[in-house]
């Protein structure tokens, strides 16, 4: 075989590549969805079981329902802005920054929440932080997963912002990439809403 046949490997049309990439991302979203399902399932399972009255033990704390929703808002903003912005490649260059800023704000808020959660009961030694019960444990896990979503989304958004400013990117393929990224943004907004609904039910 000759060098040029080799060279055509993977050079399907941008549509084919784009469709394939979107399919791949959607499959990974299924995996992530199972993860989120596992967390929400655990939350309600432990809540209903309330073993040894330890969901929120006597004298324990819980967070306001709004705590979870604060985190979701930037996600929703990011997803909608991205969706609207990616319709026009020309304007996406500027609009994409809004998505990025929303995500960074959300990331910061999520980090603040995780760092300042009112669950440390073991204040004296300052070494081990304790969790009061299964509510606080489940809450922290969900917040951690949101954090992971945020980090990935911020990475993607940052990439899209930079790439929108570079000329050598294949525009047709890039349009597909925007849609693919949009799948992810939409999904994390949905999962964020699901998690916020979950943590609203204390």
């Amino acid at each position: 075989m000759s060098a040029d046949t080799k060279f055509h490997m993977h050079h399907d049309s941008p549509e084919q590549v784009g469709r394939r990439e979107r399919l791949g991302v959607r499959l990974l979203i299924v995996a992530d969805g199972a993860f989120v399902f596992g967390m929400i399932f655990s939350y309600f399972y432990l809540r209903n079981l309330n073993a040894n009255n330890g969901w929120i033990p006597k004298g324990g704390h819980h967070l306001a329902a709004s705590t979870g929703w604060v985190i979701v808002l930037p996600l929703i903003v990011a997803a909608i802005v991205h969706k609207l912005g990616s319709r026009q490649m020309a304007s996406f260059k500027n609009i994409s920054i809004i998505t990025l800023i929303a995500l960074i704000v959300g990331l910061y808020l999520q980090w603040k929440q995780l760092a300042h959660m009112p669950f440390q009961v073991d204040g004296d030694s300052g070494k081990v932080f304790g969790f009061e019960g299964s509510y606080s444990s489940s809450w922290v896990l969900i917040a951690g997963a949101n954090m992971f979503h945020y980090i990935l989304a911020t990475f993607i958004s940052l990439g899209l912002v930079i790439r929108a400013r570079r000329a050598e990117v294949d525009p047709i393929l890039e349009k597909w990439r925007l849609r693919t990224a949009g799948s992810w943004f939409t999904w994390i907004a949905i999962s964020g809403i699901a998690c916020a609904i979950t943590t609203s039910i204390i």
Partner: peptide, 24 residues
């Protein structure tokens, strides 16, 4: 998390459950 940060997913003393693990 239970092993490193003393969460109580599976600790029945504090609202956890081994059944949850078995389910997942």
């Amino acid at each position: 998390l239970d092993r490193t940060f003393a969460t109580t997913f599976f600790d029945a003393n504090f609202g956890g459950s081994g059944w949850l693990y078995a389910h997942l």
